[in-house]
């Protein structure tokens, strides 16, 4: 970002503030819509279980991404690289540990019946 001239600083700050406020509102509205979809799908019982589960998974992932993007200000570009690496690594470990746990225990469970 280029440095603003001093006389414009107040104006730039106000613009900055408005921009950030809009970002939060966007995040809020997107999350709200996704939440409504999620609960709607279950409450009105409009699809079979597989479709419901897939919808739930997708809306949850989208909402997490939305909150990362607009509430936590994490995006793929213009980010300190440390943070992004960390988040991706965490996702990898979470997938390995969570997925592995479910997979192993399901496998054991299946072989006990």
């Amino acid at each position: 970002m280029t440095r603003e001239a001093p006389e414009d600083e107040a104006g730039a700050r106000a613009a900055d503030a408005a921009h950030e406020r809009r970002s939060y509102m966007k995040g809020f509205l997107v999350s709200l819509v996704l939440t409504l979809i999620t609960f709607g799908v279950v409450a009105f019982d409009i699809a079979d279980r597989i479709t419901v589960l897939v919808t739930l998974g997708l809306t949850a992932l989208l909402q997490i991404a939305a909150q990362f993007r607009w509430f936590l200000h994490i995006r793929l570009r213009g980010q300190a690289r440390d943070d992004l690496q960390l988040i991706l690594f965490t996702a990898l470990i979470l997938g390995l540990m969570g997925g592995g746990t479910i997979f192993i225990l399901a496998n054991l469970d299946a072989r006990m019946h």
Binding site: T38, V42, V52, L56, Q67, F68, F71, L72
Partner: peptide, 20 residues
């Protein structure tokens, strides 16, 4: 914000995943 993200997991997996 982190707690809200965890809550997304909770209402999706714990509640809706079981009820849906």
């Amino acid at each position: 914000h982190f707690l809200d993200i965890v809550w997304i997991g909770i209402f999706t997996i714990v509640y809706l995943g079981e009820l849906g």
